[in-house]
Design a protein around this nucleic acid. Sequence first.
DNA 1: AGCAACATGTAACGAGTTACATGATTTA
DNA 2: TAAATCATGTAACTCGTTACATGTTGCT
Lengths: 181, 181
Amino acid sequence: MSLRHALLGLLADGPASGYDLTRAFDGSIGRYAWQAGHSRIYPELAKMAEAGQVVVDETGPRGRKTYALTDDGHTELRRWMLHWPEQANVRDETVLRMFLVQSLEPEDARRLLEGIAAHCLAEIENLRPVMEADDAEHRPGDPLPFGRLAGEYGLRQYEAVHGWALWSLERLGAAEPAGTS
Amino acid sequence: MSLRHALLGLLADGPASGYDLTRAFDGSIGRYAWQAGHSRIYPELAKMAEAGQVVVDETGPRGRKTYALTDDGHTELRRWMLHWPEQANVRDETVLRMFLVQSLEPEDARRLLEGIAAHCLAEIENLRPVMEADDAEHRPGDPLPFGRLAGEYGLRQYEAVHGWALWSLERLGAAEPAGTS
DNA sequence: AGCAACATGTAACGAGTTACATGATTTA
DNA sequence: TAAATCATGTAACTCGTTACATGTTGCT
């Protein structure tokens, strides 16, 4: 039931409507952590309201309803954040490809790994200035901007994958002397 | 349709039965890349056979059927491995928690991050000897053992997350002077 | 003989995606 | 006034999980 906890976590930052929460999933959370569209979010918010974890906070123009966390919602969020299971499964197509690299001909494997390395470099060059801009605006003592820790995570992630791809190319290159020289 | 490609990739290593493939998902692939139980795997193999991507290779004792890749299966696997979409979504509860760290009180956030750091260290100490044993057995020129690249990826991943958790603790610590020191 | 492991399958359920459906408000 | 965006909802489909169901082989 991670969708529920994602919503609780996002609402901890302040009241939001189903529409706002749907937009949040269009960003980094949706890419790196969890996915959901509005068609799942609205019914889930309704269930959470029924369970007393959120309440309708305000009603706005176009039938807009903003939800806010209740104390129960906060408690449940905290419980979930702190007791995470050791065995959490990850679903990641890129990692799946990594597991299967050795099913390719060496030449194809090299092409794939070179693609991964290039892609990571591009993402790093994309993320780094964003993080640096965040840091430039930030004064010591202020709370970190929402997502700053996650952004740093993404940056380090790409750096790690980049390093891995280069290491793998070296390994594969050693096994196949018809290489790049 | 990643389950299909996971099965194609596993079968590229040699013919296997539904039972064997189910066992494969109990290991690292299931933890870090993709999940499936036998109840999805058997019907999927049947569909793949219908689509001509695999064929029943041998029948053994207890109704055991081993499947082997056809040329079409190989072609489809290669296609999928090489054209991966830029926008591949990842589903990962741990990363979700990272995105939501800032919804916690600073004291709880520190506890969570310390837990993550400790967990990563434990995983690193678990994985490193396995990888080193693989390398000790490996002679230059031999193909790398199946999963060696993925294992290295896992190791580097944990190192990156460990570094991230320490960095985050430092950042959070600076914002909250009632710290450890 | 009994138990663990091998081996395959179906059914019900849960949750995310895509498509269908509708309407209000803001902006050009 | 037309288009984009805001805003909410339901229905059908896909696919992974859990539970139900059954039978065989090998080992002790």
